[in-house]
Amino acid sequence: MKSSTVETNKHKEVLLEVNDLKVYFDINRKKVAKAVDGVDFSIHKGETVALVGESGSGKSVTSLSVMRLIQMPPGKIVSGSIKLDDKELLSLPEKSMRRVRGNEIGMIFQEPMTSLDPVFTIGNQIIESLVYHQGLSKKSARKQAIELLNIVGIANSEKVIDGYPHQLSGGMRQRVMIAIALSNNPKLLIADEPTTALDVTVQSQILKLMLKMKDTFNSSILLITHDMGVVAETADRVLVMYGGQIVEEAEVKELFLNPNHPYTMALLKTMPNLDQHVRRLPSIKGNVPPAHMFPEGCRFADRCEFAMERCRLVAPELENISDGHKVRCHLPFMKGGEALGQ
C-alpha cells in the first residue's frame, strides 16, 4: 500500500507503468513487423500524457496493447510488462482482463462515424456496459445512461438515448463514445486520435470535454495524436514515438521550448504558425520505414538532416538529459533549437 504522503503529491503516484513492451506482427513466414519495439513509459494519477508520432510509428498498437485488444495472430506481445495499479495486465486471464476493459480503462477511438454499432440504440450501447460491469438493473442503468449523456453535453438526452448512431453528427457520436468510455468511472482513459475525424470547431469542444471529464472522474488520460496543436492544449507530458520506439519524452513546456530529437523538432516545425507568412507548409520528407525493414542504426537516420556516420551504424539509447527529459539521439543538442541555429 502507498503511504499517505504520496497522496498529497498526486502527480507522482504511478497509475500505469509500461516496461520494455515489444509487439510484433507476422507478415509472412519470414518477415516480422516490429510495430512496438521496447517501449517504456508511465502515467501518473490525474495526468494527461500525449503519445505523438506519424502514422505507422506504433502509437495505436501501444494503446491497443494496454487494452490487450491486439489481434493475435498475426500480432503477438513478445515481451514486456504493463502494470495498472501494480496489477500485471499481460498475464491476466482473459476473464479478469474483461473486468479491466471498459471498467478500469475506457477507450475512445478515432472514427466516431463507425465506432458505434449501427443497429442498436445509443442507450442500449451505454446500458449494456453498465449492466455488465456494475450489475445494475436495466431501469437504473438507463437512468444513469441519461445522466452520462447530460454530463457529456448532449441536449435532450431523453430522446437521444432511444436514437440510433446514424441520427447523430460526428461530434455528437464522439460525445456518446466518451460517455461510454467513462460509464464505469475508469482510472485511465485512452483516446486514440479522438479529434482527427472531426470538424475543427468540434475538435476543441471534444478536447475541452475530455479534460473536464478527467477532472470530474479523477482519471488519467493517454492521448494519442499526431497534432502538436492538440498536444500543446491538453497534455502534461509528451512521449514522441518513431519507428516503434520512444525517441523523446518530456514535460509539455520543456518539449516545446527545448526539443532535442531532430524528429521532434521536425514535428514542431510542421505546425502552422499564424504569425508568419509561409508559402508552403514545412513537412518531413519521406515516410516512416515499414516496421519489418527498420535500418540497423538510428531508425530516423534516413530522414534526419543531421545524420552522421555513427547514426547509421549504432542505434542510440533513450538517455536522460535533464530531470524527466529523455532523448534517443547521438547528437548532444543540450540547447535544442538554438544549437541548430533556429
Binding site: M67, L69, M97, R98, R99, V100, R101, G102, N103, G106, M107, F109, E111, T114, S115, L116, D117, P118, V119, F120, E128, S129, Y132, H133, M177, I180, A181
Partner: peptide, 26 residues
C-alpha cells in the same frame, strides 16, 4: 473487421455478447 466490434470489445463485454448480439444482428 469493423470498428464497432473493437468498441464493444473495449467495453470488456464477453465474446458471447460480441458475437451473438452485435455481430450476428449486423
Amino acid at each position: 473487421q469493423l470498428d464497432y466490434v473493437r468498441t464493444i470489445r473495449s467495453k470488456g463485454l464477453p465474446e458471447r455478447i460480441v458475437v451473438y448480439k452485435h455481430i450476428l444482428k449486423n
